[in-house]
């Protein structure tokens, strides 16, 4: 939560477990085994200090810089998103009123657009938690919904028509 991880080790797997209104942002270099994953909690930062990936507007540039340091190139980079659910749909109180999930996703997409990194797949919205896994060596990203099974979300040879994109 609020953290990020990057790796260039082919055997590594990056995981964000139990994403609710938080958004998991995976950055993958399509041609080299370099990937990063950030667990974003809130759309935008006002505070001076915080965990590196807590706020979307800071997490995306930080994650980008980290994977580039490991040799990833921006023109080969793609983003895959998971999470951003509305966990307490229907509850009246402030825990629900914020619709944090949708705002988190919008903030992440905006920061990625600013950085020129395309979003190639997303499993976002809805009202279920998710776990996202990035297998660094194969550049494969998979997602599991609460109570469901793990399904592939993206890999470098996905045909464009197969992409999972929630509106």
């Amino acid at each position: 939560m609020g953290e990020l991880a990057v790796s260039a080790a082919p055997d590594d797997e990056l995981v964000s477990m139990g994403l609710g209104s938080c958004v998991g942002v995976a950055l993958v270099d399509r041609e080299r085994a370099v990937a990063g994953l950030a667990h974003v909690m809130l759309p935008a930062a006002n505070a001076a200090y915080s965990a590196p990936a807590k706020f979307a507007d800071r997490a995306v540039p930080t994650l980008l810089a980290c994977v580039e340091r490991l040799g990833a190139r921006r023109e080969r980079m793609v983003a895959i998103l998971a999470g951003g659910a509305q966990m307490f749909a229907g509850a009246r109180a402030s825990v629900a009123g914020l619709d944090l999930g949708a705002r988190n996703e919008a903030a992440v997409r905006e920061a990625l657009a600013d950085a020129g990194v395309p979003v190639r797949a997303a499993a976002t919205g809805g009202d279920r938690g998710r776990t996202v896994r990035v297998r660094v060596g194969e550049a494969r990203v998979s997602v599991k919904e609460a109570g469901g099974v793990e399904v592939p979300l993206w890999h470098p040879h996905f045909h464009a028509d197969d992409l999972v994109e929630t509106p």
């Binding site: 994403l19 938080c22 809130l42 659910a85």
Partner: peptide, 12 residues
């Protein structure tokens, strides 16, 4: 749901 999804969403 997943424990993390519930707790992290409340904490956020």
């Amino acid at each position: 749901d997943m424990l993390g999804a519930v707790v992290a969403s409340v904490l956020a």
